[in-house]
Amino acid sequence: MAFEPTCNIAGIVLGYTGKGSKTVLPAEARAKIDIRLVPDQTPGDILEKFLDHLRKHGFDDVEVRHEQGFLPSRTPVTDPYVTLARTVVTEVWGQEPVIHPGTGGAGPNYVFTGHLRVPCVVIPFAAADQANHALDESLDLRGFELGVATSAAMIRRLGAYWGLLSDGQG
């Protein structure tokens, strides 16, 4: 899930889907797909490969609209800021964090790692049953309170690390 590209059908719109029967031959059919990219893949390069695939199979008349594209991102496990975040999270939560080198999710981390060339660490505060992007998305109070404490501790620790605060206590 974390290391391979995927191709997902996000939605299909076509034909008659109402109650009962309606004998119709639809003129048009539309689908939205998301292809998730792994390191060293770029949206432009994969779009070219996708269009080649359509051409080769006789679908070159299909209209392809590029809705969104962005790059994958990785921060090395050995980065000193990862060690710092790991220490802070362990102190605040009282448990060692599970470290994911990558997940199936996609996001704008490349703006920081690619353009600004700084490490990027995501620290999740919601529970596993949060139902993100679905109905009734939630954040439990434990996660909320630990989130506030983690953010404050990270800022204090970074301040001390950068020598902005003399005692490191804020």
């Binding site: 990219l37 594209g69 962005f70 990862v82």
Partner: peptide
């Protein structure tokens, strides 16, 4: 807790 160090990129098409 968890730390997530990498995310995938995206090519979204209609």
């Amino acid at each position: 807790p968890a730390l997530i160090l990498g995310l995938k990129g995206m090519l979204y098409l209609e």
